[in-house]
């Protein structure tokens, strides 16, 4: 059982038979009353966001969630295949479970998979990944002006905004939480 004082971002709880992760919380206390914790909870199965307010003294049920390091193997067009790095067991995830993580998934990348009651439900990418630019307009030499960007396609097919000096075939570091370009990397 969790108390309201245990609530923090990333806490996984079960509500009405569904697993949720806390994505936002705020302590609130009206001037003349009981204290509450206002939360936003993301359903780990559907991705839906629920607003819920807990009164101090109420308890929350922990969700049966486990996590483990896996290597991404390949996609066969219908499912994404991963391998458990400890047991070498292979398993597949639906595109819905992979979600936006597919924008940054490249073969052999190590990621953390989250399981709810032993069923894989989501992919947790590293905060930063290095990906190849497979297409962009030619670079502009010497142009390092702040803020000027162009669109570039990554090897995953996803597009990001990069500075004008970036060339096709170069590798860049991307922040998977925001989808933003971070820096050019030498390979």
């Amino acid at each position: 059982m969790y108390q309201t004082s245990d609530i923090r971002n990333g806490l996984k709880v079960e509500i009405d038979g569904q697993p949720y992760i806390v994505t936002y919380f705020q302590f609130v206390k009206p001037g003349k009353g009981q204290a509450f914790t206002r939360t936003k909870l993301k359903n780990l199965l559907s991705g839906n966001v629920l607003d819920r307010t807990f009164k101090t003294g109420e308890t929350l049920q922990p969700a049966d969630i486990t996590e483990g390091t896996h290597q991404y193997l390949y996609s066969d067009g219908e499912a994404f295949h991963f391998m458990n790095m400890e047991t070498f067991d292979q398993l597949e995830l639906t595109p819905e479970s992979v979600g936006d993580a597919r924008n940054f998934l490249v073969e052999e990348m190590e990621v953390s998979l989250m399981f709810y009651k032993d069923r894989p439900v989501s992919v947790d990418l590293p905060n930063f990944v290095e990906l190849e630019i497979t297409y962009c307009e030619p670079g502009v030499k010497g142009n390092t002006a702040q803020g000027a960007t162009k669109s570039a396609t990554l090897s995953t097919g996803h597009t990001v905004n990069v500075p004008l000096f970036i060339e096709q075939g170069e590798w860049v570091k991307v922040d998977t939480r925001t989808g933003d370009y971070v820096e050019r990397v030498r390979r």
Binding site: V28, P30, G33, Q34, F36, R38, D51, T53, K55
Partner: peptide, 18 residues
């Protein structure tokens, strides 16, 4: 199942203040 004040304030902090 809670008191009027708790129910009132729960809605107040969840829906009214925001």
């Amino acid at each position: 199942d809670e008191s009027f004040d708790d129910a009132f304030l729960r809605r107040w902090v969840s829906d009214v203040e925001p």
